[in-house]
């Protein structure tokens, strides 16, 4: 059987995630990560490094069987995937934030609200559920600038420590969703190679359970 391909997010989380796979029995050569695609030592898996936002796409099309991606990215993209396992890393939440003057204000009483975000779909869904009419201004980074310079009233962005918000004189108003790195699986591959997929998922789950106990 061909090795199962795992799409990994290049960068911050890469080593941490490879560590989890190594502990589960899928070790890689120490300097393997310098290539974009490399096997594990057992030959059962093959890792590819992709831009974090692209990981769900690789998996949805079946170019990779598995992927590791932030739940926020998966949901924002509306990707149709299985999410059998949360990895407990990369924890953060998607928050509505703005200048402190907005604390305690009832948003339903604001007729026109402009919100900057890198997550237009999730933001829109959230505001629709709350019956608010909001203009979403899409930005691809440095979202916290938007309210500061008057581009928007509020922003929706991922918050990890909250430091960036603080530094820009912003406060969190509401939480839209909790996020962390999840294992995503292609639907068709999950059906066709069920036993192999299960072995990988179970061995990763064992590692996560062990780590939880140690903590």
């Amino acid at each position: 059987m061909d090795p199962l391909t795992v799409a990994l997010p290049k960068g911050r989380m890469q080593d941490e995630v490879l560590g989890i796979f190594a502990e589960a029995g899928y070790r890689t050569e120490p300097d393997a990560g310098r290539k974009l695609i490399f096997p594990d030592v057992t030959g059962r898996l093959r890792f590819l490094l992709a831009k974090p936002g692209d990981v769900p796409t690789y998996v949805e099309y079946g170019a990779a069987a598995f992927g590791i991606a932030g739940l926020d990215t998966v949901r924002e993209g509306g990707h149709d995937l299985y999410e059998p396992l949360s990895l407990g890393v990369g924890k953060c939440h998607l928050a509505l934030a703005g200048p402190a003057s907005w604390l305690g204000r009832d948003l339903r009483k604001v007729p026109y609200l402009r919100v900057a975000s890198k997550y237009p779909r999730l933001a829109q869904q959230y505001f629709q559920q709350r019956d608010l009419s909001v203009e979403i201004i899409y930005l691809s980074g440095s979202i916290e600038l938007a309210p500061v310079v008057g581009l928007s009233d509020l922003l929706v962005d991922l918050v990890q420590s909250g430091r960036t918000l603080k530094e820009n004189g912003l406060v969190e108003l509401e939480t839209l969703m909790e996020s962390e790195a999840v294992l995503v699986v292609n639907r068709a591959v999950h059906k066709l190679r069920a036993a192999e997929i299960r072995t990988v998922v179970d061995s990763l789950a064992d590692v996560l359970a062990r780590r939880k106990e140690l903590r």
Partner: peptide, 29 residues
Amino acid sequence: VMLDLGEVRSMAYYTGISFHGYVQGLGLH
């Protein structure tokens, strides 16, 4: 045939058995 009782995705009008066919190498049914 693989029995698969956890698949909730199917046409809303289905009332009994439902099935999907998959082939190796194609990421979609």
